[in-house]
Nucleic acid binder design. Structure first.
Lengths: 224, 224
DNA sequence: GCCATAAAAATTGCATGCAATCGAGGCGAC
DNA sequence: GTCGCCTCGATTGCATGCAATTTTTATGGC
């Protein structure tokens, strides 16, 4: 009998799931620009499968919003309009605010200390002007918040959103520059303060404002 | 046998989208209990299609969380555990809070007046103890909020969540009974107050608390 | 030379076929 | 009578085939 209860979180359990994951990775890692055609047949050969399971995976990714299916004309990497980026960023802001609220309810002292440590590290990187490491810490803090929220559905949704926004954020490059960077650090201070007090309403509002600022910075950088 | 239910809310653009929609409707309207097998072949015959497009639609709905695909064992209507319902309700609470926040930013006077009118109507139904109409107004208010938020991605996500939770909410029957009902009405007053002041932070917190109460009521009624 | 049109090639979408797997019923051991 | 094993019908998952559509290429008119 073959019993393996979810222990292998990263090894795909079924062929289908593995194809979906590989296709997701392909979309995220390809150098092709948004709007480029997804080469169905090529990918079939690369993955060593026929068109049926590949097309199933394409439908799933299209439902997820990562690609777009044009009737009789194949799949393209989804191009986000400025308005769509704005909406998705607002959605992300709402999810982060929620994550903060939930984290305030259930975060452990240990988890809080880890976030505080990440914050110090991030601040140090800000002071010495090390952007790559700053962003790394920044991202780690936001991930830690979602982790502390302890809501699997929220986490999955945030990850999906993050993927959809990846290209837009990337093309907008570093959203923190000059004054905005300083401001972002200040906002992070407020986030930590609210979290320290376990003040859900406060952290929600501060996080929302923080992500809103990021959104505005990104939108400014999108030429459209 | 091609039974064409005339309830196509949106004219499906492609065959695939239509199948997904019809399958969604089938899941929502079937009398089969959660956990029941989705009769793939039967539905193929009912829809007048072969297994390939049906299977594509099944994968999409599974990715959406409405059904579950067991390897080599077909599809079942997703059974939500108590913990999953709790998580999804929290997520819904977060989305409503976001909708409220965004609505405060962009709601028109006309939209606000319509919501206020719905509120009065709802209150009247509360006073005369008419639960069906009360719930109708209640739902209309929440939908109006999402509409006023003007965020397509948020709206789509909320609708998807609502579907996933449909069965749980239904089996938990009316979540407002006795004292809880009075409380819910009071919460709605607070929501209206915050919206009147266009106070995003306040409406977010009140809406979150409101949905949280609904969540707790539902969880209490789930026997597990 | 350029645009419009038409034929050819490639691509897409669905149906069908076939091997692998699952589940029910039957059989035998105890 | 119950438990375990085995076989057979049914189901699932993927590959392949074919008609419909699109894209590319070829051709002719101006």
């Amino acid at each position: 009998m073959h019993i393996d209860n979810g222990l292998k979180r990263f090894a795909a359990t079924t062929m289908h799931d593995e194809i979906v994951q590989r296709l997701r990775d392909w979309v995220n890692e390809t150098s092709l620009p948004a709007g480029a055609k997804v080469p169905e047949r090529e990918l079939c050969e690369e993955f060593g499968i026929s068109r049926t399971p590949m097309r199933e995976a394409l439908k799933v990714l299209a439902a997820d919003g990562l690609i777009e299916l044009l009737p009789n004309r194949g799949a393209r990497i989804k191009v986000l309009t400025r308005a769509e980026v704005a909406d998705l960023m607002d959605l992300m802001a709402g999810l982060e605010a929620l994550a903060g609220r939930l984290a305030c309810e259930r975060i452990t002292d240990e988890e809080f200390q880890q976030i505080e440590q990440l914050h110090q590290e991030m601040y140090a990187n800000f002071l010495r002007g090390d952007r790559p490491r700053y962003f790394q810490c920044n991202q780690a803090i936001h991930e830690a918040l979602f982790s502390a929220a302890g809501n699997a559905a929220l986490d999955a949704m945030a990850r999906s959103l993050q993927m959809r926004l990846r290209r837009a954020r990337y093309t907008a490059s570093s959203d923190a520059q000059g004054e905005r960077w300083r401001e972002a650090v200040r906002e992070h201070e407020l986030i930590l303060d609210a979290l320290r007090k376990r003040d859900g309403a406060a952290i929600a509002t501060v996080l929302f404002a923080h992500l809103r600022s990021t959104r505005d910075a990104i939108l400014r950088q999108i030429a459209e």
